[in-house]
Each structure stands twice: as structure tokens, then as C-alpha cells.
Simulated scan of single mutants.
Amino acid sequence: MHFFYRVTEAECWLAAQKTGFFVSPDLLVTGFIHASPQQQVLTTAGLYFAAAAEVLALEIDMALLQAAAVEVALVWRGEREATFAHIHGPIPVSAVRRVLKLQSNATGQFSFCPESAP
């Protein structure tokens, strides 16, 4: 299985559970949902979610996205030395295999909560 991770605020995940689909503001602005490889999750959280109260990482199964006919483009970002996923549509909740809690310390650096570490 191949996974990418969407870092998000907890309230966005709660909304997805009500509708059956995860939709983030970037889908409306750029036309796709940004997702990170596992090794970039904590950096992504620090860059974009430092002020958020409760931060999660949604573990997305790419095979389940493909089965749901959701288009995904893989994009290399040299400055971060990683390939990221651009998910062109709402993510079915059924494609999210795990929800991992993140925590930040006093300096704003994120880590996985022990009970949900990958």
C-alpha cells in the first residue's frame, strides 16, 4: 500500500465525517488538495498549521483513491526534496486509513502523539 498524508485541523476532519468526504480550502482555491509523504508531515504541520489548536494527519490510501476515481498527480518539490500528491477532488472518508494526532512544543515544532505514531 502507498500512503500520503493530509495535515489538517480537527474541525475539518469532523466535517468530513458528517459529509463522507474531506474537502479543504486549498481544493477550492487551487483545484486540488495538497498531501505529503510521511517524512514531510511534521515539516508541513510546522509551516502551515502552527497556529491551529488541534492538528491531525490523515493517512490516505492512494489505491482507495484510485478505486474511487479520484485523480492524483504526483509532484516533485526540489526545495523540500520530496514528492507530494495533488488530489484533484474530495477525498472519500473511506480512503482515510488512520487519523494521527500531532502535538507541538513550546517552540512550535510538531511531533506525532505517542498513541498515534506511524
Score class of each variant (00 low, 15 high):
His2Pro: 03
His2Arg: 10
Phe3Glu: 13
Phe3Asn: 15
Phe4Ser: 08
Tyr5Thr: 02
Val7Glu: 01
Glu9Asn: 13
Ala10Ser: 11
Ala10Pro: 09
Ala10Cys: 07
Glu11Ser: 05
Cys12Ala: 10
Cys12Glu: 04
Trp13Gly: 12
Leu14Asp: 15
Leu14Ser: 12
Ala15Ile: 03
Ala15Cys: 00
Ala16Asp: 06
Thr19Gln: 11
Val23Asp: 11
Pro25Asn: 00
Leu27Gln: 07
Leu27Tyr: 12
Leu28Val: 02
Val29Glu: 13
Thr30Ala: 14
Gly31Met: 03
Phe32Trp: 15
Phe32Val: 11
Ile33Glu: 09
Ile33Asp: 01
His34Met: 11
His34Gln: 12
Ala35Tyr: 01
Ala35Gly: 03
Ala35Ile: 04
Ser36Ala: 15
Ser36Gln: 08
Pro37Lys: 12
Pro37Arg: 14
Pro37Val: 10
Pro37Tyr: 13
Gln38Trp: 06
Gln38Leu: 15
Gln40Gly: 01
Gln40Met: 13
Gln40Ile: 00
Leu42Phe: 01
Thr43Tyr: 03
Thr44Cys: 10
Thr44Ile: 11
Thr44Gly: 00
Thr44Leu: 06
Leu47Ile: 10
Leu47Phe: 06
Tyr48Thr: 00
Ala50Phe: 02
Ala52Glu: 07
Ala53Ile: 09
Ala53Cys: 06
Ala53His: 14
Glu54Phe: 01
Glu54Ile: 01
Glu54Val: 11
Glu54Thr: 14
Val55Leu: 02
Val55Lys: 00
Leu56Ile: 02
Leu56Asn: 09
Leu56Trp: 06
Leu58Gly: 05
Leu58Arg: 04
Leu58Lys: 06
Glu59Trp: 08
Glu59Leu: 04
Glu59Lys: 15
Asp61His: 12
Met62Lys: 01
Met62Glu: 10
Ala63Lys: 11
Ala63Pro: 00
Ala63Phe: 03
Leu64Thr: 13
Leu64Gln: 13
Leu64Asp: 09
Gln66His: 09
Gln66Phe: 12
Ala68Gly: 07
Ala68Gln: 10
Ala68Ser: 14
Ala68Arg: 08
Ala69Phe: 05
Ala69Cys: 05
Ala69Lys: 13
Val70His: 04
Val72Tyr: 04
Val72Asn: 07
Ala73Val: 08
Leu74Glu: 15
Leu74Thr: 10
Leu74His: 12
Trp76His: 05
Arg77Val: 15
Gly78Ser: 14
Glu79Trp: 05
Ala82Pro: 10
Phe84Asp: 00
Phe84Cys: 00
His86Phe: 07
His88Trp: 05
Gly89Ile: 14
Gly89Val: 06
Pro90His: 11
Pro90Met: 14
Ile91Asp: 11
Pro92Gly: 06
Val93Glu: 07
Ser94Gln: 11
Ser94Tyr: 03
Val96Thr: 07
Val96Lys: 01
Val96Glu: 03
Arg97Val: 11
Arg98Met: 06
Arg98Ala: 07
Arg98Tyr: 07
Val99Ser: 08
Leu100Glu: 04
Lys101His: 15
Leu102Cys: 06
Gln103Tyr: 01
Ser104Ile: 04
Ser104Trp: 00
Asn105Phe: 07
Asn105Ala: 04
Ala106Trp: 02
Ala106Asp: 09
Thr107Lys: 15
Thr107Asp: 08
Phe110Lys: 02
Phe110Tyr: 13
Phe110Asp: 02
Ser111Phe: 03
Phe112Gly: 05
Pro114Tyr: 01
Pro114Ala: 15
Pro114Cys: 01
Pro114Asn: 07
Ser116Gln: 08
Ser116Lys: 03
Ser116His: 06
Ser116Pro: 06
Ala117Leu: 09
Ala117Ile: 09
Pro118Thr: 12
